[in-house]
Design a protein around this nucleic acid. Structure first.
Length: 645
RNA sequence: GGACCCGUGGUGUAGCGGCCCAACAUGCCAGCCUGUCACGCUGGAGAUCGCCGGUUCGAAUCCGGUCGGGUCCGCCA
């Protein structure tokens, strides 16, 4: 994801070329007492007009008696000419002007002299002959280049001076795209009968899920609010309220460690629908996603419409990931069918393979195209990656250009089997076959990680394509070894696939005494995730809206009725007053915007993001409260040493 | 909680035991210039190499710690 890829040539700045249509559409209302037009507005048709422009000095070219100023605002750049013989007063001001000064210019729109037109500017046919120039505000020399969109700048500097970074073209582009994204989302929802409702951000803490951010209450000393991790319960309660179709662009908060795709506060498109099944929700979201993509990034092709729908089982088998990047192949291939099993005993000749198969595990492979002649160091690197994700090792077979198979394990397998394995994997001359032999879960996971890793390194994915896909039929629960209970894989309210309802039982017969052998472990959830280009965009489910199933599911998850009431009391009570069947989804707006602009992190599509350690370098937040704030809240700080004790 | 990478004039980089009181580009300041658009030309200022400590005759360079930023694992229903 390089910076140029940030979608298309754009532009305000002359370096990059030309203006996008979106930036040159001018509502007539942008005129103010400070300007008659914006800096991206004037054209040959305006020649002769007396105008006034205001903006920042993008660049100054001083030729002595003649000074050129490139005047910039977010709409574009207009060249201003100050002639010392025509208007000495303005020339005097122009010679004092520096980069990023805010100035206001009055003058006449004139055609540029023949041969001096600038094709890279949308205003390049004209220039402004200055009659009056006023400095509205001076500016210190900026700490980095505002006028060069390609200049690399340390990200922490950009964050400290975010207002200057936002003045730069790439950030303007991304914030604009994000604005259009949200606008398109809102439009699609309103057109489909959704009601936009705001839910509170001071709510009740629940012990489930991620760590809550908490806010001490002054009126209720000793008690705290929590900031919502998502509006989950509230939106379900809205369904009980008969809202039918709800959506919200909702700010959410999770106090967990940060990543490139995770910030402590982030924005979700949150929606919920009543009287729906899985297909209703998926169909709507899919149509909406297509409309929105085409509205926001019409130049980017969708890989497949309708979006492919995979079951969790299939996607893990084929891609080793529940958020596969479908822009390239490199699918996982099962090698077991080639391995002979005389008397039912696997006999490849290579112990690692045979033991894995005999133990109920798998032998699977992916093909790294063109890496057949990779040096030992490269193989070692891949092996390290495989081990980091839990594999015991990584076997490989290299197909030379001549077609002969090389590799340390050929001597165990024999040439014939080695060749058949390569053929099964789909490898051609010059390719490298990477093989993992382990339990099913580890094998798929490790190969999936290698696939993602190699796909990125080898540049296999077309950066222009948008590859959406659905993944559904997730397992309802995952066995929690320490807790001795079934843990919801996604949302504790996810419904169960109707035909699996009977599986919600335990071997013991008592849902409050679960064991890893329970049929419940095989139950599949009415849960669906939407993935885009290898990122999880979001997920949702049809909820359990029947009281009996909810109690059963919670019992399997090890929650007593009392604990349930404590955590979800309001919602459970609401459910006793006639809850309609309902379900919904939440999509990460930050991730979506990052993907649509081909950025590697969501920080690039947020105006004021935080660092990995959760600080805001511009505001210098967080900061210690003052004594009075503590007193109001009845709080006292415990020194770090005592906390550890 | 852990692993790894980065930190040198305003900015981006080079230098990786002595050739360095640090180089290049750009920015900044001053002067000149009436057709430039990354204007040009001439001159100038600007860094005790994140910080602390150690090794060494000698440290930007090696080692330890620390601070800041990033990537990843754990974590994130």
């Amino acid at each position: 994801m390089d910076k140029q890829a940030c979608h298309g040539p754009s532009l305000i700045w002359p370096r990059s070329g030309y203006d996008t249509p979106a930036m040159t559409e001018h509502p007539p209302s942008l005129a103010t007492p400070y300007r008659t037009h914006t800096c991206g507005q004037l054209r040959a048709g305006d020649i002769g007009a007396e105008v006034r422009l205001s903006g920042w000095v993008h660049r100054r070219r001083d030729h002595g008696q003649l000074i050129f100023l490139d005047l910039r605002d977010r709409h574009g750049i207009t060249q201003v000419v100050v002639d010392g013989t025509d208007s000495p007063a303005a020339h005097d001001v122009a010679s004092r002007v520096r980069s990023e000064f805010v100035v206001s210019v009055s003058g006449t729109v004139t055609a540029r002299l023949a041969g001096t037109e600038n094709a890279r500017l949308s205003t390049g046919a004209i220039e402004l002959q200055t009659t009056a120039l006023e400095i509205l505000n001076e500016a210190r020399t900026p700490p980095f280049y505002i006028n060069d969109p390609d200049a690399p700048v340390d990200e922490s500097l950009r964050l400290k001076y975010r207002y200057l970074d936002i003045r730069r073209e790439p950030m303007q582009q991304r914030l604009l795209l994000r604005s259009r994204l949200v606008q398109a989302i809102r439009q699609a929802h309103h057109e489909n009968g959704f009601v936009e409702i705001e839910t509170p951000t001071l709510i009740k803490s629940t012990p489930e899920g991620a760590r809550d951010f908490i806010v001490p209450s002054r009126l209720q000393p000793g008690s705290v609010y929590a900031l919502p991790q998502s509006p989950q319960q509230l939106k379900q309660i809205l369904m009980v309220g008969g809202v039918d179709r709800y959506f919200q662009i909702a700010r959410c908060y999770r106090d967990e460690d940060l990543r490139g795709d995770r910030q402590p506060e982030f924005t979700q498109l949150d929606l919920e629908m009543s009287f729906v099944d899985e297909a209703t929700v998926m169909d709507f979201v899919e149509r909406m996603a297509i409309e929105v993509s085409q509205a926001v990034t019409p130049e980017r092709p969708l890989l497949e419409v309708p979006f492919p729908r995979f079951t969790y089982g299939e996607v893990m088998e084929r891609f080793g990931s529940d958020k596969p990047d479908l822009r390239f192949g490199m699918e996982l291939v099962d090698l077991a069918p080639e391995i002979p099993t005389p008397d039912g005993v696997p006999a490849s000749g290579f112990r690692v393979f045979d033991d894995a198969l005999a133990g109920g595990g798998r032998v699977k492979a992916i093909v790294a195209p063109g890496l057949g002649d990779a040096p030992r160091s490269r193989i070692d690197e891949l092996t390290e990656t495989a081990k980091r994700f839990g594999a015991r090792g990584l076997a490989h077979l290299a197909l030379e250009a001549t077609g002969s198979v090389k590799g340390p394990i050929v001597k165990f397998l024999g040439d014939d089997l080695a060749e058949r394995l390569c053929a099964r994997a789909g490898a051609g001359p010059g390719d490298l076959v990477l093989i993992v032999a382990d339990g099913t879960e580890v094998t798929n996971e490790v190969l999936g990680r290698l696939r993602t890793d190699l796909g990125a390194r080898l540049g296999l994915a077309d950066p222009n394509v948008l590859a959406y896909c659905w993944v559904h039929r997730f397992p309802m629960y995952k066995w929690d070894v320490e807790g001795g209970r079934w843990d919801a894989t996604h949302n504790p309210f996810s419904g169960v696939v109707p035909e699996d309802e009977a599986l919600l039982t335990t071997v013991s017969g008592d849902p409050s005494r679960p064991s890893p052998e329970d049929p419940a472990g095989r139950a599949r959830a009415l849960q669906y995730d939407l993935a885009l280009n290898g990122w999880e965009l979001g997920g949702g489910s049809i909820r359990i809206w029947r009281r009996d199933l909810l109690e059963l599911s919670f019992a399997l998850q090890g929650y007593s009725l009392e604990r349930m009431r404590n955590m979800f009391g309001a919602m459970l009570e609401a459910f006793e007053y006639g809850a309609p069947p309902h379900g919904g989804i939440a999509l990460g707006i930050d991730r979506w915007a990052a993907l649509l602009t081909n950025q590697a992190t969501i920080r690039e599509v947020m105006a004021f993001p935080k660092t990995q350690s959760g600080t805001d370098l511009m505001l210098e937040a967080p900061s210690p409260p003052d004594a009075g704030q503590y007193a109001d809240l009845g709080l006292r700080v415990v020194p770090v040493e005592e906390r550890k004790a």
